[in-house]
Design a protein around this nucleic acid. Sequence first.
DNA 1: TTTAATGCAAAAGATTTGCAACATG
DNA 2: CATGTTGCAAATCTTTTGCATTAAA
Lengths: 151, 151
Amino acid sequence: MKIRKKEVEHRMQHFEQVCRDEGIKLTHQRIEIFREVAQSGDHPDADQVFRLVRERIPTVSLDTVYRTLWLLNDLGLIATLGASRERTRFDANLDIHHHFVCRQCGLTRDFYSNDLDNIALPETVGTFGEIEATHVEVRGICRECAGMEKR
Amino acid sequence: MKIRKKEVEHRMQHFEQVCRDEGIKLTHQRIEIFREVAQSGDHPDADQVFRLVRERIPTVSLDTVYRTLWLLNDLGLIATLGASRERTRFDANLDIHHHFVCRQCGLTRDFYSNDLDNIALPETVGTFGEIEATHVEVRGICRECAGMEKR
DNA sequence: TTTAATGCAAAAGATTTGCAACATG
DNA sequence: CATGTTGCAAATCTTTTGCATTAAA
């Protein structure tokens, strides 16, 4: 899935602006790495970005791709899906439930809500495939990481 | 966070029943590995389970923990959080949006909904920490994996 | 020209696999 | 007792890091 040209251009401009503001050098590699993520609607992983960028810059290295993706993430120019940088976590709670996840330490708490269990989805979603489960993920900062327990 | 004893016992019984039904041997290791996940409300990763189980079975190995966790997952006795077995994926879409994720191939599609952007959360969630973002994750099987495009 | 960024190679980390020894049903 | 399961060690795969070289501002 490709993002339309107009939107990609807009994202590129925002990226260049932020880099200039932050005093971050606009290298050939960074521009192409950002462009690949910006024009893809497929939420690629580091290796996929690497392969795509390599078509245009054959000498690019995988570690530069990793460094750049995390840099872009820290600059708020891109985001990670799900609980990033985390390993797979397991859960024996098989009841329908939802999650609060701390973006700092990864702490995850279950919560329940009949309202959320029954939320209506837009029809578009049905066109993607067969829906099996819907769950709400709340991201934030837990009490401990926020220093709330000290007050 | 610990799950209450009654619920843990219930989970253990279900686990033993499923194993018997499936002809899967109830080894000392499997029982303790399942017990650790069943009694933890912290959604541990493989290494955390390994450390906990090792306190009771000092000779247990990490690879047995991995094998067992995936077995339990395949049996539907436990689940993984987020897009399991997947690497970190990146997204340049910074607008508020939600995701449809195929549990088979990992395909991820964005969708939008004002209703979902503004869902009300139960008060309990606020007690976990500071809420920053709420997003809905729909899990299912995409058209291609379901073989829907062939019909 | 100055400083930050890259590529390389190696290290570190996480997860998986082959196989002989062992425990369960 | 037969077969599935374990532990070990090694392999594999992913991600990160140190450092000399190179390129951006």
